[in-house]
Design a protein around this nucleic acid. Structure first.
Length: 290
DNA sequence: TGCCAGGGGTTCA
DNA sequence: TGAACCCCTGGC
């Protein structure tokens, strides 16, 4: 991939990269939009700002070493999304969805942060999910530094959260009944009951079986973790939104979440994760089925 | 103003 | 299978 590195910026051209699509398609909770339409976040202990003008993408506050070691993988830049769209373009509905969210990419996010974030997401609303993750980072994370006048904090590691008080989770971080689930999950990783490092080499089936052992992780949350942190791109998480979209655009009547999963596997095969993101973004932004 | 439903699901009976 | 679950916001 060709890019220019200068002034602590990385600049490259990519037609399948749109910050709004990437950060608002439901996979990440910490990217915040600035007045200039750029997005800022802290991930892997670094503050980064992303902006787009025409097909030119600028990553600010990034040196070349971090770009190659961290952000290439994080933004899935080695993958050809135009080729994926080609594979998925055999039906009109999907073509429309891909047209709408043409710049979506599936991020490869930090494993632990993703596990906790999606435990928080259960039966919750996005503004509140974001707020809780933000408070957890301020309370338990490390101060990373200032960027454009704001202070940024990293997401805490599992050791720190394993020692957090359950009541603080609830009363300070406002996570509600998910309080115990967060602390207990962190403890299971800390104790080695779940091997975080090894889990990166599990196949999808083994990974799923291990993930649902965490309290607060069921089928949907496990799928999201697999897709958004472990790169299991065939995974098709079924939530209420994707259920509505599939029912109204593909099926024509109501059915179970399980059936939708089976059907999606049939239609999209190994590209399920990409299909899910295009449909989710398209469906939610246009309130399809609601 | 005040009440009430419902939310990117999971758990427990 | 179905109710309950924290908390917060939007709709009436």
């Amino acid at each position: 991939m060709e890019y220019i590195a200068k002034d602590n910026k990385i600049i490259f051209r990519n037609q399948s990269f749109n910050p709004k699509h990437i950060f608002e398609c439901g996979q990440a909770f910490r990217w915040e939009r600035n007045d200039d339409e750029s997005y800022t976040n802290v991930a892997f202990g670094r503050v980064i700002n992303v902006s787009k003008k025409d097909d030119i993408i600028t990553l600010d506050n990034v040196n070349e070493e971090d770009f190659n070691n961290i952000w290439m993988d994080y933004f899935d830049l080695n993958r050809d999304y135009e080729a994926i769209k080609e594979k998925l373009s055999n039906n009109e509905t999907m073509r429309e969805a891909m047209d709408f969210g043409y710049g979506i990419r599936i991020l490869n996010q930090d494993h632990f942060e993703t596990i906790i974030s999606f435990i928080i997401s259960a039966n919750n609303q996005i503004p509140r999910i974001k707020k809780s993750i933000d408070i957890i980072s301020r309370e338990y994370g490390q101060k990373i530094g200032e960027y454009r006048g704001k202070t940024y904090y990293s997401f805490p590691n599992f050791e720190t959260l394993s020692k957090a008080k359950v009541e603080d989770m609830r009363e300070i971080c406002r996570v509600g009944f998910r309080d115990k689930r967060i602390v207990e999950t962190s403890q299971m990783i800390c104790s080695g009951e779940f091997h975080l490092e090894e889990s990166k080499n599990y196949d999808s089936s083994k990974l799923y079986d291990e993930l649902i052992k965490f309290p607060g992780v069921g089928p949907k949350v496990a799928s999201c973790i697999m897709l958004f942190a472990y790169g299991k791109s065939e995974t098709f998480p079924v939530d209420v939104w994707i259920k509505r979209v599939m029912e109204s655009l593909y099926i024509g009547h109501e059915t179970s979440k399980k059936n939708i999963g089976i059907l999606a596997k049939d239609i999209f095969g190994d590209y399920g994760g990409f299909a899910q993101q295009y449909l989710f973004y398209y469906g939610r932004e246009n309130k399809i089925g609601k």
